[in-house]
Amino acid sequence: MQSAENIAIAHVPPEGADVSQAGVCVLSREEQELLEGAKAGRHRALRQFYGTYQGQVRAHLFRLLGPDCEIDDLTQIVFARAFNALGSFQGNSTLSTWLYRITANTTHNLLRQRFRRDRVKTALNWFNAGRGTAVQSSRVEARDEAHRLLQRLRPDLREVFVLYHYEGLTLQEISDILGKPVSTVGDRLTRARKKLRELVSAS
């Protein structure tokens, strides 16, 4: 997790990674070995793959969705899809970025559905929370409130905000993950920040 004091971070390729002249970061030797084993369906390699990345996937899901009973299920779905798609992975990105892409694809529709479903409810809660602020402000944790604010952000903006600020990815990496131009990603990030600032001020 990236601290708020250090929001803008410079991304360094993983140690041992081969960076081509085109600037594309390909797999490190360890990742290649792991990938070959996993593609061959070796239990040990699949287990190691899961052990290495389950923390990343689970944490990303948590940051996107907050405390949610479906996180366990979604983690399994992400890895199940990853296991099935290993054969088609070309190694043009790191395994980590590839998994972010699968996670984003897995959660995208869910986030949109929930956002639509909860919009009215959230607005109502927000209204009620606003009325009770004087009584509750001392009790409500800033973190919980921050989480609620984040949930009010549109899914496409939230995805970018979480990937950039919490996962520490660059705009280029986010662009690769979401399949959108860097300019679109940058625009979404700016809009996400602005919207959050508005929400914070309104609170």
Binding site: A142, A146, Y166, V200
Partner: peptide
């Protein structure tokens, strides 16, 4: 609040 937002949630251990 903004600080909490940028800091992000505390992720429970896997």
């Amino acid at each position: 609040l903004l600080y909490a937002l940028y800091e992000g949630p505390v992720v429970p251990p896997p």
